[in-house]
Amino acid sequence: MNLKKIGYFLKQAFKNMARNKVMSFSTILTVAISLLIVGTFVVFIVNAGIFIETQSNKTQLSVFVDTAYTTAEAKKVGTELEKIPGIATIDYKSKEDALKEMIDKQGGESGLESILGDENPMPHTFIITGKTNLELESISASAKKIEGVYKVDYAKDLADKLTSIVNAVRVGGIVAVGILFLIALFLISTTIKLSLYAKRKEIQVMKYVGSSNSFIQGPFLASGMLLGFLGALFASIILFVAYKFLMDWAKNVEFLNLTFQGGQIAGIIAALLVSGILVGAFGSYLSLRKYLEV
């Protein structure tokens, strides 16, 4: 396979496309829509994954001790807490630390310090992480039973909910992606079938004079790949613009923790382009195998 031959195939592919403008355009559009949806799913799944990961790391229990408890009494509660199975780490945060942290958070100018005076409304707190997130529930239940514990707080099922949503989207996405790929495949193979039909006389002549199979099939394979590639290119451009726009917005939403990642979108676009070309090649291969007896 030399460059001259590839050039010839591509030239023929462009000619085919020009000859079947409407069909080619609708094929490109369908491939573009299919791949755009595929790309959207992938972007969603990847970023939801990042989001969940950052949220999961934060999943921890805060055990608040009765505000009336002294530091010594609070430490005793801590000893009880340590007996609960499934705990990975346990950190103690005294009333004083908690208050200081809050004042820092509010900023020096809030005047909180002077309002409170000597009062410290903050409780002693134990921050617990489970060995896995699954154990948080039982740890929480056990902690509540300990005397002196007045509240257990944890971002209970935010992570769980997100995980289940993402899983549902993932399953639905895979099904949708599969169907869309089939539609794209079908359309490309139909387009190629039509151009095979339109060029049946040329093909016959080629066979009679002993053209090699690659010479006969090359232009059609190139046509399919070109259609797939152009569709993917459209999808990639739209996806990139949408992604950029969304991430610029997400950047300002603190809890999302999502930022524009060039590597990520470049990877997805590369995958889309490759998929487009592969779908195109496979679609034309199907038609060639079925309709072109060599």
């Binding site: 066979k207 009679y208 004079v209 002993g210 053209s211 090699s212 199979n213 060599v294």
Partner: peptide, 10 residues
């Protein structure tokens, strides 16, 4: 296939 193409060239 290749020999067949040769045949047809001839």
């Amino acid at each position: 296939t290749k020999e067949l193409n040769m045949l047809r060239k001839n």
